[in-house]
Design a protein around this nucleic acid. Structure first.
Length: 812
RNA sequence: GCCCGGAUGGACAAACUGGAAAAGUCAGCGGACUUAAAAUCCGCCGCCCACAGUGGGCUUGCGGGUUCGAAUCCCGCUCCGGGCACCA
């Protein structure tokens, strides 16, 4: 008598497999040597919140399946991550818990690691890190200094919410109905210096690389779309406008005492085609996305961040109003065209399209749509322009369409067919714009053909952004302010890292870092005189610019200087990262990482990445929602992964998140996927164990040959399809195919038994071989049960399970 | 306001590139096993008409269009969700 087959007990199976993995250090990154293919798979760096939520489970289940798949295919895989540990929520968590932020994140990271271990992800924990570790945030400081030296980090000003009572800067989420979250006193906007990151010089290249990324086939369409969105490319035309002699004529002036959100860029920007220092009287280049409506312009808008803005601030009061605009903040409600700030410069411009005196107005509305440039205001074509025209008291007869028609008639016949027959947008799409985009020239038969100096042009919405924060829990900015003559002085590279005091206890009031005399007071690196350190810290977005790099460094090399690290063979061998697997909200991070990689390539440290792309491929998955809504405590619809794991085991939970939806779609949580997957794993377990123990007979003659070959064919098809799907990160289909194969195996058995009382030796061998194939394909998706079944089927689990057809096993 | 998604039985959904809509799961109903319950397993399960039974018609948010053929593509709507930069 054989003993009853063991019941499927995920808790004990998973504990046993995890212990075995840990004992043989199964997921340590192989040294980057030899000629086996190599693949760096980058999961997202989780914010160190203290809890792995179901969204993380989805993300890491996809990435882990992919990593395990390639290991099973015989490739060397780097799969590890760092915790994104700086940031406001950590500070708030520390305040709430009455501990220091460093203690708080250490505790959170520890708990999250336990959760991830319980889920059985194949991360190389030797390479995990916290971004708040000095060894790591020195990367931020180094990067800051390198970019500062290259002129890509610069000083500007910006507006922040300020609470007078608490003497502190507030983030948007700390402002509740215009009052401070802590003391509930009113909040006001103040202007203060900020450090900014310049990205303009790299926008055109980021744009031109899009085609290559698309053709590579390893960038998911959704991920590419997000890159296009962040870039914000606008096609159109530009033309040069000449400044009329100063006039004293009083123009209609916009009411709103201006508020503008972004700090100013004093230096020329790459989006502006005129790079040489302009002389007075030199023309202003203006852009419009409406090539067929150049003649319909009624005014010109210029960004307060335009590189040549100072040329147009001579009229009385303009400079002061511009300062107001820069020091204020653009309120959320003021983004609409009817409330957007406007400053009349009292300058008028002549255009080659026949205008004699287009008024020039400063408005931050330009930045949000076209970057720091100047644009034509065309009320007939643009809703926002129409509203601005109304505020300026410019006459635009009738409704938009009729007005457009009349204006076309009075200025120029060209473009009339578009404006009178179709909606404005359709006219642009079908008109000169499309021609200009496709062949780089000006299309025939349109109005711009007739106007000299009107040429195709491109603008980008993406913009420089502030990287400094008035918070204590962040990377200290390596700058000192000398109290003698030297001014702002960068801390020398060899003095890095500038250490953040670990025992800070923020309360929400003041700036704990600025109050630490032991941190603030230091000596000037240049003159040795008394100096105070910068007390702003770097935003976590800045940390994210390098977060993809340190896992490529073998742990033993971490102590080295960054110069040495960047010269490591390992680092070069693993880069570029083969695939990023992250949430679809990571578009900005990825964009900025791509941008700064190009900067570091040009400066030198990453010169070996010739195309300046840190990531060869990218998959953005959607989030897990429930009842059609984002999960939140407030809605009470949060799914707790720990609870599910305790009940069904990690394999079931992982399989369910993979199975429930294709990665690019939101996963609307329901328990049915979990129940389905749990039942499936249960059945595979029972089926395999009972068939192993099933008796066989000696048949008089072999009557099942055709059934066996049909089963072999099914296995072959399943392997073929599943291999493709795993490589393409279509885990939902892979799971379905594995389930289908199981159904076919059961069908095979049913048919064999229908033809006789029991299986022959050959019949059973076929069955077990099919089950082995199924187990191999299940391994990346539900690794614990697969490995346990693999052992039960008589194999060794001292190495990674090979993918079907892969003979050479990879020593772990 | 702007941008991006989505809408398929009582519920969650599947349908890969335009080729038999509704696989699978939950709930429900019936049965097996059990002293009983839980667990597990088996059967039924979109709507309407007809029926002893076989059958016939309709159906992918709404209205149009393209096509031999549409959940899928195009145009116009409705509703829902997400994002909009000191949260990460």
């Amino acid at each position: 008598m054989t003993a009853a087959p063991p019941a499927y007990d995920p808790q004990s199976i998973e504990a046993a497999r995890q212990a075995a993995w840990s004992a043989r250090d199964a997921f340590a990154t192989p040294p980057a040597e030899g000629d086996r293919p190599r693949r760096y798979i980058k999961p997202s760096a989780p914010f160190t919140s203290g809890n792995i939520h179901i969204g993380h489970v989805r993300s890491y289940s996809i990435g882990d399946a992919y990593a395990r798949f390639w290991r099973a295919r015989g490739e060397d895989v780097l799969f590890a991550f760092g915790f994104d540990a700086f940031g406001l929520p950590a500070e708030l968590g520390a305040i709430a818990g009455g501990v220091s932020p460093s203690e708080w994140v250490a505790r959170c990271a520890h708990h999250m690691k336990d959760q991830l271990l319980r889920l059985g992800y194949s991360f190389d924990w030797h390479r995990a890190f916290l971004s708040s570790d000095p060894q790591m945030y020195r990367w931020s400081q180094w990067l800051f200094l390198i970019l500062l030296d290259a002129g890509l980090v610069y000083r500007g000003t910006g507006a922040v919410d300020w609470c007078d009572t608490c003497q502190t800067t507030l983030a948007t989420i700390q402002v509740e109905d215009g009052t401070c979250w802590r003391c509930h006193n009113p909040v006001r906007l103040i202007q203060r210096p900020q450090w900014n990151l310049r990205i303009n010089p790299f926008l055109a290249e980021n744009d031109s690389r899009m085609a290559e990324l698309h053709e590579s086939g390893v960038w998911d369409e959704v991920a590419l779309a997000s890159q296009r969105y962040v870039l914000g490319r606008v096609d159109g035309v530009e033309l040069d406008l000449a400044e009329n002699p100063a006039t004293t004529e009083e123009h209609a002036t916009a009411e709103n005492p201006a508020t503008a959100t972004e700090p100013t860029a004093a230096e020329p920007s790459a989006a502006e085609p005129t790079t040489a220092e302009p002389t007075p009287g030199e023309p202003l280049t203006a852009f419009t996305p409406h090539p067929d409506a150049v003649t319909l312009a009624r005014f010109v808008l210029i960004s307060p961040k335009h590189p040549h803005i100072e040329r147009f601030t001579h009229a009385p009061g303009v400079r002061e109003r511009l300062e107001d605009l820069r020091s204020g903040g653009l309120e959320r409600d003021a983004r609409d065209a009817d409330a957007i700030p406007l400053i009349d410069t009292h300058v008028t411009l002549r255009s080659p399209a026949g205008h004699e005196a287009l008024p020039l107005l400063v408005s931050p509305v330009v930045d949000g749509r076209f970057g720091p440039t100047a644009v034509l205001g065309i009320p007939a074509r643009d809703h926002a322009d129409a509203m601005i025209a109304t505020r300026l008291g410019l006459t635009v007869e009738g409704d938009e369409e009729a007005g457009a028609d009349a204006l076309v008639a009075s200025h120029d016949g060209g473009g009339r067919e578009d404006s009178s027959m179709e909606a404005p947008r359709a006219g642009v799409r079908g008109g000169a714009c499309a021609g200009a985009r496709s062949d780089g020239g000006v299309a025939d038969g349109t109005s711009i053909d007739a106007i000299d100096g009107v040429r195709p042009a491109v603008r980008y919405r993406a913009n420089d952004f502030s990287i400094s924060r008035q918070r204590s829990w962040g990377t200290p900015i390596p700058i000192v302010y000398c109290q003698d003559q030297c001014g702002a002085v960068p801390v020398p590279m060899h003095e890095l890292p500038v250490l953040l005091p670990l025992d800070l206890k923020p309360t929400g009031a003041g700036n704990p870092l600025a109050e630490r005399e032991d941190f603030v007071a230091t000596a000037c690196p240049t003159c040795g005189g008394p100096t105070r350190r910068e007390t702003d810290t770097l935003d976590c977005h800045f940390d994210a610019l390098w977060l993809w790099l340190p896992v490529c460094v073998p742990p033993a090399e971490r102590e080295r200087t960054l110069e040495q690290i960047l010269a490591l063979e390992d680092l070069r061998a693993w880069l570029p990262c083969e695939r990023v697997v992250a949430g679809s909200d990571s578009g900005n991070f990825v964009f900025d990482q791509r941008t700064v990689t190009k900067a570091l390539r040009d400066i030198g440290p990453l010169a070996f990445l010739a195309d300046g792309e840190p990531f060869a491929g990218c998959l953005f998955h959607e989030m897990v929602i429930r009842d059609g809504r984002k999960m939140s405590k407030h809605l009470g619809n949060v799914v707790d992964p720990d609870e599910l794991v305790a009940r069904y085991g990690a394999d079931t939970v992982r399989l369910a998140t993979l199975y429930a939806a294709r990665p690019q779609r939101s996963l609307n949580w329901s328990d049915s996927a979990v129940l389905r997957c749990h039942r499936f794993l249960n059945q595979v377990w029972d089926f395999t164990h009972t068939r192993l123990a099933a008796p066989t007979i000696e048949p008089e003659r072999d009557i099942n040959e055709h059934l066996r070959s049909r089963l072999a064919k099914w296995c072959h098809t399943a392997v073929e399809k599943t291999t493709e799907e795993m490589a393409a990160l279509e885990m939902h289909s892979a799971v379905r195919n594995v389930m289908r194969l199981f159904d076919r195996i059961k069908d095979y058995e049913k048919r064999v038994l229908a033809r006789g009382q029991a299986m022959s030796e050959a019949d059973r061998d076929s069955l077990l071989s099919a089950l082995a194939t199924l187990t191999q394909m299940l391994a990346p998706l539900a690794p614990h049960i697969a490995e346990e079944l693999w052992i039960a089927l008589g194999n060794s689990a001292d190495t990674h399970l090979p993918w079907p057809g892969v003979s050479s096993q990879v020593p772990a």
